[in-house]
Design a protein around this nucleic acid. Structure first.
Lengths: 379, 379
DNA sequence: CCCAGTTAAACAACAGTGTGGATTAAGTGG
DNA sequence: CCACTTAATCCACACTGTTGTTTAACTGGG
């Protein structure tokens, strides 16, 4: 059984594949002591953040040791370092179980800030988030992404960032994440053909923003950014309902971007061979079915069917709905999609799915872009 | 916009999720010096293996240093260690570029062995693979998985393993991987309801095999095992055509198993609202459409359509077809699926996909199960 | 009130990792 | 033959988490 031909005749890169980190920069696989230290510091910070997200007032060194697998002594040293850096602080004491009570530790949310921006088709959203992933300040302006072109929009972005950072020391800003519609090369930081916006075509967005703002910059697809707008299950998806339908995927605890950082084309799965023609050229795509649905209920059912496919394929346990279109009728989508999921995934023990609307609402994508930057600390 | 209800009313575990390693055992996130050393050793071994897979006669320390990001000195030490352990050996010299020529290193394939087994519905396949992932010896016997029940089948497995290990020192055997159909809890090593085989229901397969063979044991879904049968792109899928349709997924360089280690239900994506009823209870599943297709061509086209959905959703660049049904008409499937992929994914620069039949043929799943075990070394 | 018992956290000495600078090995080319 | 170049190792070192011990802080019985 010989290994056989290639579909569209194009060579694939050699299999020496260097995996990419969640920050989007290609990283070498070897690790030295510095990498070890940073990894463990990030592990500790992540555990502290998770505890806070779960509603605790803090987490003790003992729990950190148990959950990280490190020794108490190592945790002591790491916590000391992080405290001196201003990232952690003692916020209370646990109850004694017969001995010295545990000291509870928490993040200092204002120790650093991350900026997030969404370049939407008709709005620019820019926000500043703290270490806990909460929005400290948001600014939203109407724009015409396809009409205005990069220079004008990025001028505006720079201006808004300036306002958001007015009272923040520069050294406390981790960087800026920029979410954009359409396909892009996340690793290189270059936009591909943003649908209907030729002036953005091939723009080296990452470099350009980095140059203008003087801040470390990362770019991301809007749907992918959305999935980073909050913590959640290691196997979850963010369904982004905007002009098109996209999905941001976290699988096995990592953001998935695919071979050409273009994963998440959720809207272009074929769902009906007799369906309408889609703008992508094929027929019966979810996106096409959804956009021509006669009623909102019907649209929600199409979406539910597609989400059920996704959940079964990837064994997800958490789905978040977000994007402009969801905000029009959130309850309707919740109930209709929920009904369909329950019907298609009948077994509650293996197939339970938490379904919700993104709590950050219209800020979800921009907040996720900021979350991408925060990931540098919590990786 | 409140976070809203749950679909089937069931609680999800707290978000302190400990990610699982590719070996299937839950691992704590913290890393100590031993973990660092093992990680770098695995990194080196992986680079050596990749070089061999790419056709080179070996790889030099200089290249290892460059590709791992470690210093030449660190590579020297690591290579020395691995050589003393018998895993690496010097196999030649590179060409001089004006100075001392590089020494080329290679794996010693016979340094260790991994066993792989596939519990098929009508056949038991057991094989021994070397470190390079090549099959050294295979045994295949007809069985009746659903009729015979665990005890008789596992007796047979033990017997075959004994034969395969006749000339192999026990300490050179890394372990055994067992691939099984149907849903299972890969982390706990327990089978769920294998379709139509009640006697296997809830069996603690991993423990049982480990007890019988006295070898470290890992279990895996058959489709997922298939994707580990060879090296390949960090974003690839193995499509398993057996009684049902499954997919093994490697995304972002890691095997993906999903929240309940049940990912890959590729056969149950709804592709046609007017399609036939599926044994899963829903209608229009790929699997149902495929199995009632009037001609082999039509079956291949259904499959192609489903694969096109998969590729777009996850941005894959490599698809391998395997399983019993593919071996019936491999060329037909290759050409028909290839045609459909080319039609649905027209842009060769972003959407190129390598499509092939699993070179290991009928051994693919068992070889992948062995590959799961090898993963312990190459993590 | 005291004090043994218990648990948390830090202190001190240590083993082992990769790093940096210098040295040796093994080629090329004039 | 020798200067030059590149590969690989030797040696001293900084820094990581670990182990064993000590101190801090609280509980509870007499």
């Amino acid at each position: 059984m010989p290994a056989a031909p290639v579909t569209p005749a194009t060579a694939v890169p050699p299999p020496t594949g260097t995996p990419s980190t969640s920050t989007g920069r290609a990283t070498l696989p070897g690790a030295n002591l510095t990498a070890l230290r940073d990894h463990n510091a990030a592990t500790v910070l992540t555990l502290v953040r998770s505890a806070a997200a779960a509603g605790a007032t803090g987490i003790s060194r003992v729990e950190l040791a148990r959950e990280s697998g490190l020794t108490a002594q190592a945790i002591s040293k790491i916590v000391l370092r992080l405290t001196e850096e201003g990232l952690l602080t003692e916020t209370g004491r646990g109850v004694s179980t017969g001995g010295k009570p545990r000291t509870l530790l928490s993040l200092v949310p204002q120790a650093s800030w991350a900026l997030g921006a969404q370049l939407g088709r008709d709005a620019l959203t820019v926000l500043r988030a703290d270490l806990a992933g909460r929005v400290a300040s948001v600014r939203r302006l109407p724009i015409d992404l396809t009409g205005w072109g990069p220079s004008r929009v990025l001028d505006l972005l720079g201006e808004q960032v300036g306002l958001l950072l007015a009272d923040v020391p520069r050294e406390r800003v981790l960087g800026v994440g920029v979410a954009s519609p359409g396909p892009l090369d996340q690793l290189a930081g270059v936009l591909h053909e943003v649908t209907g916006a030729p002036s953005w075509n091939g723009l080296r967005l990452r470099e350009e923003v980095e140059r203008r703002l003087g801040l470390p910059t990362l770019i991301e697809k809007d749907s992918t950014a959305g999935v980073l707008s909050g913590l959640g299950s290691p196997n979850r998806a963010f369904i982004h309902l905007d002009q098109g339908l996209g999905a941001g995927l976290v699988l096995g605890g990592s953001v998935q971007r695919g071979a050409r950082t273009n994963a998440g084309e959720f809207g272009h799965q074929m769902l009906d061979p007799d369906g309408p023609r889609c703008r992508c050229g094929n027929t019966g795509c979810v996106e096409a079915l959804w956009s021509v649905a006669p009623t909102p209920d019907a649209a929600a059912r199409v979406l539910g069917e597609a989400i059920a496919n996704l959940v079964r394929l990837l064994d997800l346990d958490e789905i978040t709905l977000g994007g402009r279109e969801i905000l029009v009728a959130p309850e309707l989508y919740l109930s209709e999609v929920g009904r369909l999921l329950a019907a298609r995934l009948p077994d509650p023990t293996w197939q339970a799915v938490t379904l919700s609307i993104a709590p950050s609402g219209a800020d979800a994508v921009a907040l996720g872009a900021a979350g991408l930057v925060l990931g540098r600390l919590f990786a």
